[in-house]
């Protein structure tokens, strides 16, 4: 039982990651692929933040009367990773817009007939 209590957080996060990952590789629509990438990444962020949690700790902002803080390092890493994520999303979506203009579709199976791509 205690094994489950100690790990359930990671397991659900893994489940979330895999749902995002599935959307990325299985979705037919390019916008949906990008949504999938975001879900995948956000779930990885959750794994990092879970690493940083300390039971009974509080947010890592020094204040009177608080002795236990959660670990600030994973927070910093994920702030950076979130920014990287939105940057990729922006470029990806811009590509989708251009693909729509050039091919007239953003459905993967519809330009497979013209040439095997993506």
């Amino acid at each position: 039982m205690s094994f489950i209590v100690d790990h359930y957080n990671y397991w659900i996060v893994v489940l979330l990651m895999m749902m995002g990952f599935y959307v990325v590789i299985a979705a037919n629509n390019l916008v949906k692929k990008i949504v999938g990438l975001n879900i995948f990444q956000t779930s990885v962020f959750m794994m990092y933040i879970s690493i940083g949690k300390v039971n009974g700790g509080s947010a890592p902002i020094a204040a009177e009367g608080i002795t236990t803080y959660s670990n600030p390092l994973p927070h910093v890493l994920i702030l950076t990773a979130i920014v990287v994520g939105v940057a990729t999303t922006a470029v990806g979506l811009a590509l989708v817009v251009r693909i729509k203009r050039a091919y007239g579709t953003v459905e993967e199976n519809e330009f497979e007939d013209k040439e095997d791509l993506i």
């Binding site: 990651m17 990952f21 990729t88 590509l95 091919y103 330009f111 791509l117 993506i118």
Partner: peptide, 20 residues
């Protein structure tokens, strides 16, 4: 464009794996 998009999706999956 499609080449870059494929590269972006695969590259980001790769980067996320490294992050994990």
């Amino acid at each position: 464009l499609t080449a870059a998009f494929r590269y972006l999706v695969m590259g980001t999956i790769g980067a996320t794996f490294i992050l994990i």
